[in-house]
Design a protein around this nucleic acid. Structure first.
Length: 1131
RNA sequence: GGGCUUGUAGCUCAGGUGGUUAGAGCGCUACACUGAUAAUGUAGAGGUCCGUGGUUCGAGUCCACGCAGGCCCA
């Protein structure tokens, strides 16, 4: 005896989730899904480590669903898919959180709290929400190994990072340079962008602004500016930081901006000049009133200075023009050769200034970038150690080489209030302005008020200043990075070619330095005169410490050699000895946290000390082999320049390989209105609540089905609900239907004793054919990392084909009579469909898929060969021999014809229960007839009609329609198509007939004749005169709505059946209960209907007796349209 | 300002290589069905396919320029 299929009255999806979860746990299904594939080909997945110092949000469910789907799919396909989890633990967010908790600022570190204590706090804080993350992982069904995760702060992880850094160092890919960063001379420290974004740092400041005149040198390039010009030509550039003018090294112009040369006079020296500036800005500096004044009338000191535009050109024409250094305090051969020229600047606008930007590469971030791109050297001097330094020192004063202003602070705010209040005091900017005016180098000087960043510590203005930084020379490997990226399969493709590809093309070196406390320390020690040592392992560090102790530099008790923590402050206490015997201190910076995560393919395994000692090339623990590179990774698109880049960069630089072969960059999860979710705005969706309410499957399914993962998702709980109702509800109903009747009939699926598919009815063969097509499509979609297409295909199959067509039309087969071949075929077919659906959906909806699979297979006795879990199965492959294209076409036709007939019934207000005698279907070829005949029974049953009659051409009653085949005609006749199309549309029935008879038509338009063939047009039947017809493309259907007495009686009988069934249901009878029906005499039509359809009524209602009686006292009165009847049902 | 991306019905989305009546689901309205019933069927209303130009016999689809939203960067 078979076991029962579980039946459910009100299933709760969240409970299904919990039930399956405990099943997985109890049986170790996840572990088994990995272990059972031991020895099979591996599929490598890298988990991008989340940071557990914040709570997980709904977007994490999205990202992790994507990851989970493909790991589960590949497992189904027979691969072994290990998924090592990980935690990202270093970085600024952790520091900020700790500072907030302790109520301290960075300033306090080392004062109120030691670095040691601070870092200890960070270590604790970073795992603060680990439990929530673990809960989410479990509840959403994300399978990842959290028992043995990699943790980026662990010594073995950091040690591996050091090893990799040393590799880069040894390859010459790690170097010290500088970047231009916000710097506070008053505080003597650089400021992070985070610090700069603190409220209140930007304040209005009144600065002296100068438009300086840069004198153009004569050359071939500049010759055009001197045609018909004898006076000197100057380029005008504006600055609000005059103190940077001695450091000017280039002028930047917009290549597309229009510029003009204006002939006029200097307002301070009154000398005749010609100046170059953006055309749009001429009005700003030259008075409209003076435009008409003749230049020759000008006298020194005139208020109105005449001017005249003498030339116009684009920025491109100005490029490479050289000019005389404006304030030549410092120069050298390199500068003379490569600086003081016009370069392109993408940031140049004509909003203010002159449309030409003064560039001092060491004092501006944009300046630094464009100067570097154009190969312009910086204006620097050598300090006492022979090191290059800028013209402003770290205190914010000019160096002695800037003789006129030596040791003057560049910003007046750096002077004390007392000094500034001295009536004789003049800010440096003003002194510079005076000097330039005198030298005929200033065109305009004025006060300018603008927003300027201030140091939050000292409240003094910041400078943009070159600060030491360590870099990875990614530019050296740019070509390989670009080249190897082309072999990565990006989803979506555009992120790979566009966002990522373009970024690689415009790569700059990777700035590795971070001035922080909690992170991976830079393992580089430097002596005062620049000797460097990079440490690549704990082993090496210990050896170096011993050396240092021996040399008497370290005492040996500074650090605990047995438990050497590689974080600050411990590593800072280590002072090594250089080859020449000098003490070396560690470079104080930490490395960018992105290095941590980008190195996870190696660092997650840690170093194998023996391999390391032997000097092996990849001395990582053994698991590294076979787990590099990754087959698949997935993260948010915001990781493009983050994790995706660091993974790629390190892999290419260290191994000349890609780090991952396939990648999905998913989009953002927004709220339902398309706004970013944020806790502050209160529009964030709680993932736990969502899962509790709708279950994990509906949540996952919705996210995948609704839009491609790489598009932004407008997350709407109504949508989740819809998915739950429409898809899961329908699937559940279908299963419930199956379980109900299978249990009644004691059906058991016996895989080896099934009815051959070829012997099953059309409907079964059709749905199985559809199922095979579904398998193919789903498999292909998953293989192409397109889960959305897979989900939509499964959903369409379940709701449209399986439920709304197959089950609906098959219902009678299940509920009538005893077990027979047809019934068994129906059960077997539906079982197969449900079972396969369970498997196909399981990567996306792992709980429900499991639940469905188990419900189906748990009822099988013993030897079924079914797995304990759907996640341990191998994915079915499509059986092409079950695919029947012509049957698919037939059924498609059946669905369309049925729909047309329903529509006609509706128009004539004839309900489906009323049988009709026939439909007419015009057919123009035999193939269509055969196609419809194959599914004739299905159509007739569905629409309650007795017969289909096929009207072919020979009847002569068909009215036809002709349509030009635009595609074919367009290709052939091009411009004449319009006329030809119009002419064809004018064809009458005679023309169509003639064309069919002659297999063509000679169409004459004007004097031209076109030989049309039958392929140039589409001919279809449109109407049968005298009938009411409905059309759907080439299909036409006419319905005979004559209702004979017999049909009327049958209709009444059906109504009666329906009412009796309702009564049965109201009485709470079971499906299989037999009844006795008594009907009171009354309407003659009902009596007649009863007599002529007695057998039918009994069969349908499970009635053993059906009696007409004279009167019923305790019967039920029933209305059927305009008829009334009294009847009674007894057991 | 730059790179990428999105824009089709009230909402969420489909619409290979251009082909003349632009589709689906939800929602809305009406009707039907009632042993899958917190289902289901049929019909209806609802579109300047973001705009403007261009290529073409023909553009939702291709090109250019804009507009609006999003992400990343500066």
């Amino acid at each position: 005896m078979s076991k029962k299929y579980k039946e459910f009255k009100n299933p709760n999806y969240a409970e299904i989730g919990e039930e399956i979860l405990s099943f997985w746990k109890a049986n170790g299904i996840f572990e088994a899904s990995v272990n059972q594939r031991e020895g099979q080909p591996t599929f490598t997945f890298y988990e991008g480590p989340p940071s557990a110092n914040g709570t997980p949000g709904i977007h994490h469910v999205m990202a992790r669903t994507v990851k989970d789907i493909f790991c589960r799919y590949k497992t189904l396909k027979g691969f072994q898919v290990k998924r090592k989890g990980g935690w990202d633990t270093h970085g600024l967010p952790v520091e900020l959180q700790v500072e907030k908790e302790l109520g301290i600022t960075k300033e306090d570190i080392g004062k109120k709290i030691t670095v040691e204590e601070y870092n200890q706090k960070c270590r604790e804080a970073v795992m603060k929400f680990k439990q929530q993350w673990d809960d989410l992982t479990e509840q959403m069904g994300y399978w990842v190994d959290l028992k043995d995760p990699y943790i980026t702060f662990e010594n073995s992880y950091v040690e591996t990072l050091w090893f990799l850094l040393k590799e880069l160092f040894d390859k010459g890919l790690l170097y010290k340079g500088y970047t231009v960063q916000p710097y506070s001379p008053a505080a003597g420290t650089g400021l992070s962008s985070h610090e700069l974004n603190q409220p209140g740092t930007y304040k209005m400041l009144k600065d002296t602004s100068i438009i300086a005149q840069f004198k153009v040198k004569h050359s071939e390039r500049s010759a055009f500016l001197f045609e018909e010009t004898s006076e000197p030509v100057y380029i005008l550039a504006w600055t609000t930081t005059p103190w940077t003018l001695p450091s000017n090294c280039a002028l930047a112009v917009g290549e597309k901006i229009r510029y003009v040369k204006v002939k006029s006079f200097n307002p301070y020296t009154f000398e005749p000049i010609s100046v170059v500036l953006a055309k749009d800005l001429v009005g700003k500096y030259f008075s409209e009133k003076a435009a008409e004044l003749p230049l020759s009338d000008y006298k020194a000191g005139d208020k109105l200075i005449p001017w005249k535009i003498t030339q116009e050109f684009s920025g491109k024409d100005l490029l490479e023009i050289r000019y005389e250094q404006l304030m030549p305090y410092v120069t050298n051969a390199d500068l003379e050769n490569n600086a003081f020229r016009v370069i392109p600047g993408d940031f140049v606008t004509t909003e203010d200034g002159t449309g030409i930007v003064h560039t001092a590469s060491v004092f501006g971030a944009d300046d630094f970038r464009v100067a570097k791109e154009a190969g312009v050297p910086a204006v620097m001097v050598l300090d006492e150690n022979g090191k290059e330094t800028p013209l402003v020192d770290k205190q914010g004063r000019f160096v002695k080489e800037v003789s006129d202003f030596a040791l003057r602070f560049v910003k007046e705010e750096y002077y004390s209030d007392a000094e500034r209040n001295d009536p004789e005091f003049k800010p440096t900017d003003v002194l510079i302005a005076i000097k330039l005016k005198q030298e005929n180098k200033a065109f305009k000087v004025e006060k300018y008020e603008h927003s300027y960043p201030h140091c939050w510590r000292t409240d003094k203005p910041v400078l943009y200043y070159p600060l030491d930084s360590w870099f990875i020379k990614t530019t050296a490997m740019k070509d390989r990075l670009v080249e190897l990226n082309k072999s990565i399969n990006w989803k979506p493709e555009s992120t790979g070619t566009g966002r990522f590809g373009n970024w690689l093309e415009n790569l700059v070196d990777w700035n590795l330095s971070r001035s922080r406390f909690w992170g991976t320390p830079l393992p580089i020690w430097v002596s005062e005169d620049g000797e460097q040592k990079c440490i690549g392992s704990l082993m090496q560090l210990k050896a170096e410490i011993e050396k240092s102790v021996k040399a008497g530099i370290m005492k040996g008790n500074e650090v605990d050699m047995n438990h050497l923590d590689l974080h600050r402050p411990y590593v800072d206490r280590i002072i090594l000895v250089s080859d020449s015997g000098k003490p070396m201190n560690r470079e104080p910076d930490l490395v960018d946290v992105w290095f941590d995560s980008g190195a996870m393919p190696y660092a997650q395994w840690g170093l194998d000390q023996e391999k390391l000692a032997r000097g092996e090339k990849n001395p990582f623990n053994a698991d590294f082999n076979g787990a590099f590179p990754a087959d698949f990774i997935a993260e948010g698109v915001d990781q493009t320049r983050g994790w995706f880049f660091t993974l790629h960069a390190l892999s290419v630089m260290l191994h000349d390989k890609v780090a991952f072969k396939n990648v999905i960059a998913n989009g953002l999860v927004l709220d339902k209105n398309g706004n970013k979710m944020s806790k502050r705005l209160g529009n964030a969706i709680d993932p736990f609540k969502t899962i509790r309410e709708f279950g994990p499957d509906a949540t996952r399914w919705y996210m995948i089905e609704n839009a491609n993962p790489w598009d932004n998702l407008k997350f709407n709980l109504d949508g989740v609900q819809e998915v739950q109702r429409r898809f899961f509800g329908t699937l559940l109903n279908t299963y419930s239907f199956f379980a109900l009747y299978a249990n009644l009939d004691g059906f058991e699926m016996q895989e080896n004793k099934t009815i051959a598919v070829k012997d099953r009815p059309e409907l079964d063969r059709w749905i199985l054919s559809k199922l095979q097509i579904l398998i193919k499509e789903v498999d292909e979609s998953f293989a192409n990392y397109d889960a959305t297409r897979a989900a939509r295909a499964i959903q369409d199959f379940v709701t449209d084909q399986l439920s709304n067509w197959y089950v609906r039309l098959s219902r009678k087969r299940f509920w009538r009579g005893n077990m027979n071949a047809d019934k068994q075929a129906a059960y077997e077919t539906l079982f197969e469909c449900l079972s396969v659906t369970a498997q196909l959906m399981s990567p996306i909806a792992p709980f429900f898929g499991e639940w469905l699979y188990k419900n189906l297979h748990d009822a099988q006795s013993g030897q079924s060969g079914a797995s304990l879990s759907v996640h341990l199965t191998h994915m079915v492959s499509a059986r092409s021999e079950w695919i029947d294209e012509s049957l698919n076409e037939s059924m498609d036709m059946a669905q369309r014809i049925s729909s047309l007939i329903h529509s006609l019934r509706k128009k004539h207000m004839i309900k489906v229960r009323q049988p009709l005698s026939r439909v007419l279907i015009p057919v123009l070829n035999e193939k269509t007839v055969a196609s419809i005949k194959a599914v004739e029974d299905i159509i007739l049953a569905e629409v309650n009609v007795k017969a289909i009659e096929y009207i072919d051409d020979t009847s002569g009653v068909l009215v036809k329609k002709i349509k030009p085949n635009f595609k074919k005609l367009g290709a052939q006749y091009g411009p004449r198509l319009k006329e030809i199309g119009a002419a064809i549309s004018q064809f009458g029935q005679e023309d169509i007939k003639r064309m069919e008879k002659d297999q063509g038509y000679a169409l004459t338009i004007g004097t031209d004749t076109f030989a049309l063939t039958l392929e140039d047009v589409e001919i279809m039947s449109e109407d049968i005169p005298g009938w009411l017809v409905a059309n759907d493309g080439p299909l036409t259907v006419a319905l005979d709505i004559t209702i004979t007495d017999a049909l009327r009686e049958e209709g009444v009988a059906r109504d009666l059946v329906n009412r009796i069934q309702n009564l049965r249901k109201d009485m709470g009878l079971e499906v299989q209960d037999k009844i006795k029906v008594s009907v009171a005499r009354g309407e003659s039509l009902i009596e007649a209907a009863l007599q002529s359809n007695r057998e039918y009524i009994c069969r349908e209602t499970q009635a053993l007796q059906l009696n007409l009686v004279d009167s019923l006292n305790d019967g039920n009165t029933i209305e059927m349209d305009d008829l009334q009847v009294v009847l009674k049902i007894e057991l």
